[in-house]
Design a protein around this nucleic acid. Structure first.
Lengths: 202, 202
DNA sequence: CGACTGACAGATATTGAAATCTGTCAGTTG
DNA sequence: CAACTGACAGATTTCAATATCTGTCAGTCG
């Protein structure tokens, strides 16, 4: 009674409950129980269970945004920045998959529930990629007609290394080799690539 | 009674039953019923239900091999062959997804059941890619230190356009654009790519 | 004698009744 | 009066009984 119930406290409790029981068993009643309040109170802050889960998902994804935010340094070539950024993303995903499979699975389920949040998240990451590629274009290291389109292509070409549907492949001992090969291919492509625009000419 | 029960007839009936009832409902009893025999007879030809399903899967995948077999023509540049091959594979997958979603889903389920067959299938397709890339290397159109490794990289980079886990994205109206962008990037990479070998130097 | 049947045991799937959960809201409390 | 409770209706999930399926094999048939 001493403290007022905040949205933040509910989110923290929800994360805890999700981690404990998994996405299939976690209920709003569980969250309320963990907070020592009635489940009706939770509904003062989140209109539905789906909204509550979505808020947790958004929080998790925002943490990734922040961690992945690229730092620009004129001394570092764009190809290096790009490789490091992709490696960092891959490492993060792979680590969370191997070190806490249960949480990873929970996360994947939640992500599958709120496509709007995910779309925003993906757009944000591709935006970071775009800025790195733009830096490469500015220094003449990369060549492309359409930075946004190319950033999306790089994202698409590396899906195997960050899309959760491919998580089981991340345990393969040769996966780092495969990653290096794809990044190398993509970087080579960026050095001399002119993607014909959808409406443009050759 | 006139005709003896053949493995071939059982496979055809199994395909029909799978198409009709889906992978979850299709039973060995259904297959036997469709053939007008007791289900015990089916077990004379296939040791288990899993083996039966696997045989159907192998058959389907073999049909893809055959259809995808590249034709070599010295007049056609390797980049064109590669693009056409990838486009053909993408079209085939996308078409089967949009035109007969139910069968596609059934197919995906079966594929998920027999990893050994799938591994063989993937190896076979990557082998076809390898031959195309080798043709490009022979004509100096492509540059690479390791054709097998590069073929795998091209495969990995285009997963979004053939891995069934990404099927829902194939309905996106901009998917062909995304495909073109990735293929263009990959082809540009092949024109000047030296993937540092795992143990080699820069 | 080789191809097939049909009854069987154990494993798996289906079903429907009971329990639990979600979302609402009139009422309680400080 | 703002924050919360707890009882409620309808939706969803659980669970145990029941039915079906898989895989085997002794026995039938031509």
């Amino acid at each position: 009674m001493a403290e007022a119930l905040t949205a933040e406290a509910i989110l923290a409790a929800t994360e805890e409950v999700l981690r404990r029981y998994g996405p299939a068993k976690a209920t709003v009643v569980d969250v309320a129980k963990a907070l020592g309040v009635s489940h009706g109170s939770v509904y003062r802050h989140f209109a539905t269970k789906a909204a509550l889960r979505e808020a947790v998902t958004r929080r998790w994804l925002d943490a990734i945004h922040e961690e992945m935010e690229p730092e620009f340094d004129r001394e570092v070539p764009a190809s290096r920045m790009l490789g490091d950024w992709l490696q960092k993303l891959f490492d993060r995903k792979r680590r969370s998959h191997t070190e806490d499979l249960e949480l990873f699975t929970t996360f994947r389920t939640l992500v599958g529930e709120s496509s709007a949040v995910v779309e925003y998240h993906l757009g944000h990451l591709v935006g970071q990629l775009e800025r790195i590629i733009q830096a490469g274009v500015d220094t003449r290291e990369f060549v492309t007609d359409d930075v946004g389109r190319t950033a999306q292509a790089v994202w698409d070409a590396t899906q195997v290394f960050h899309h959760p549907a491919h998580a089981q492949e991340w345990g393969n001992p040769h996966i780092q080799d495969a990653f290096d090969a794809v990044v190398s291919l993509v970087v080579a492509g960026l050095r001399y690539n002119r993607i014909p625009s959808a409406t443009g000419d050759a």
